[in-house]
Simulated scan of single mutants.
Amino acid sequence: MVRINQVELPEDEINLESAYVEGGGIDERNREAARRLAVRELLRQRADELGYATEGRTEAAVEEVLEAEVRVPEADEEACRRYFDANRERFRTPEELELRHILLAAAPDDPHERTRQRDAAEALVGELQTDPGRFPELARTRSACPSAEEGGHLGLIGRGQTVPELEEVVMRLPVGLAERPVETRYGFHVVEVLGRSGGEPLAYEDVRHLIADYLRERGWRRAVSQYVRLLAARAEIEGVDLEAADSPLVQ
């Protein structure tokens, strides 16, 4: 049972809300759903206290409360510049690789086949180190990827365009044949980076507005979280933990 200042949250509403919670088991989703609804109820009750009409317009009333009582300082030039200087590696033009590969497929739940294909992939790397020109031929005859018909050529690959475990490795590789196969959920990839483009540093003036938007949004989330903890500290709450704050935000 979840109760906020003597107002009980219906279990069927918690179950319905849990359908919108991503990840975790049933119990975890239900706990998160209860937390979300408890926060909403706290804010609804605060709207009633302040005289905002909530009947049939709870979401609008909650927005009015937050606008009235949560204050977030603007991200000034000093804060934006400081964030830029501390995170320069994040501010680059999109990086792309021209890539080709040979996939030796192995199911993730077949350890024997994965060992066999790993050994075969390592042997292919050895062959290609001796004779790099054979890559297209070996891709056509050995690769389990549709790109085999193109000699293993995948074209230009940017972030988010391939499986994360392959991306994580190839984005850090120098141009040339990788010294060892790359393991993914699909098996083992013999990869060669044919070229790189992008990745040039961006000037502060080009990203200042993005940084300001990010800092403003981050500040808003923090302020709302602190405000909710304040309301929770003053409320009678059962069945859910809202991490009540010790110090007041709104007088």
Rank of each mutant, 00 (worst) to 15 (best):
V2W: 01
E17H: 04
A19N: 08
Y20S: 13
V21E: 15
V21Q: 15
G23M: 06
I26R: 15
E28W: 04
R36D: 08
R36Q: 11
R44Q: 08
R46K: 14
L50S: 05
Y52Q: 01
T54V: 15
T54W: 00
E55G: 05
T58I: 15
A60K: 05
A61Q: 01
E64D: 14
E67S: 08
A68P: 09
A68N: 10
P73G: 06
D76W: 06
D76T: 03
F84E: 01
D85N: 14
D85K: 12
F91P: 01
R92W: 04
R92N: 10
E95N: 03
L99P: 04
H101D: 06
I102R: 01
A107E: 11
D110W: 01
H112K: 12
A120M: 05
A120W: 00
A121E: 06
A123V: 02
Q129A: 11
T130G: 13
P132E: 05
G133L: 06
R134S: 09
F135L: 04
P136T: 10
A139P: 07
S143L: 02
A144N: 14
P146T: 01
A148C: 10
A148Q: 04
E149P: 01
E150Q: 14
G151V: 00
L154E: 08
L154A: 10
G155F: 04
R159N: 09
T162R: 13
E165A: 13
E168N: 12
V170F: 09
M171R: 14
E179P: 02
P181Y: 03
V182K: 03
E183F: 03
R185K: 11
G187V: 01
V193D: 00
G195T: 08
G198I: 06
G198K: 07
A203D: 13
E205W: 08
L210M: 12
D213R: 14
L215F: 02
L215Q: 03
R218Q: 15
G219P: 03
A223S: 09
A223P: 02
V224W: 02
S225Y: 05
S225D: 12
A233P: 03
I237C: 03
L242C: 02
A244G: 05
S247V: 14
P248K: 05
V250K: 09
V250L: 08
Q251V: 11
